[in-house]
């Protein structure tokens, strides 16, 4: 059974066709890339997969189970976590709390336990704090535990967002332009980080990226979108040579001479 299977997924925003007949099969353990020019529908694909939008047509199966119609937090509970193109951290809460709250869906206690501080509350909170502590350590954020996310340098905010996603214990990690706004040094670190995360947490990583250096050095397979349609799918080397991809990015020769 595939980890993620998307069949004939199409999505319309009113009359605008954002994604058309999208297909993908991830077996698990891959490093998959999704690229395309601006406005190609990449982020929409991610929004569909994480349950933020419901596809107009087609189906999304995660470990054989349909996710369409589930609310995003329930999809997260199934094992899909993501980061955002424009960093979306909880900025009035310290780094440590950011890592705790993303475990909200599996707290396993309710209002009553929170108020009475029952044994269940104590046990579950202990688990939450343990996971948060581990991630602080692993992701090198220990020093910033009580810092507000907004005060961290950009690269660390990206890293924290990944750590927050990991705190949900995902099987599939979606990274939406993780290298956006990073300097070359930070990008090198990011490349190592993504590879290391996959090994350490035994994950499947699916990423959207514009930085070709990241895509070419990290991804094992790349899918290219243009105007919502898949125009190519293959290894980075194949994609580099693909005529339609070059056309999508640079325009066709006839047009440029016109």
């Amino acid at each position: 059974m595939a980890l993620l299977e998307i069949r004939n997924m199409t999505h319309f925003f009113g009359g605008l066709r954002a994604v058309y007949d999208f297909n993908l099969r991830l077996e698990g353990g891959e490093l998959m890339g999704l690229i395309g020019p601006n406005g190609a529908g990449k982020t929409t694909v991610f929004n569909l997969v994480c349950g933020f939008y419901r596809p107009t047509e087609g189906e999304i199966l995660f470990e054989g189970k349909e996710t369409a119609g589930l609310r995003p937090h329930a999809v997260t509970a199934m094992g899909i976590a993501r980061t955002f193109q424009n960093i979306r951290l909880w900025n009035t809460l310290p780094v440590y709390d950011n890592l705790c709250i993303s475990q909200h869906f599996r707290l396993g206690y309710g209002l009553k336990d929170a108020l009475l501080r029952t044994r269940r509350f104590t046990a579950r909170e202990k688990n939450v704090h343990k996971t948060a502590e581990e991630l602080l350590e692993l992701m090198g954020l220990r020093h910033y535990a009580q810092e507000l996310p907004g005060n961290l340098p950009y690269g660390l905010q990206r890293r924290l967002e990944i750590a927050r996603a990991l705190a949900t214990r995902p099987k599939l990690l979606l990274l939406d332009e993780p290298a956006a706004g990073m300097n070359p040094g930070e990008i090198d670190q990011l490349i190592d980080l993504i590879r290391w995360i996959r090994e350490q947490f035994d994950l499947t990583v699916w990423l959207i990226e514009h930085h070709m250096r990241v895509v070419m050095s990290v991804c094992e397979r790349v899918q290219v979108l243009d105007f919502g349609e898949t125009i190519a799918d293959g290894s980075p080397e194949e994609i580099k040579q693909n005529r339609r991809v070059i056309q999508a990015y640079l325009g066709s020769e006839e047009l440029s001479h016109a």
Binding site: F52, H73, T76, R82, L89, T92, L93, I101, A165
Partner: peptide, 22 residues
């Protein structure tokens, strides 16, 4: 942690919903 879910809603509701807060 349960109650802090509402602070996450204040800071970024979309992120809260997608990152596991009902």
């Amino acid at each position: 942690t349960y109650g802090k879910g509402i602070v996450a809603i204040r800071d970024d509701e979309i992120a809260a919903e997608i990152m596991g807060v009902d």
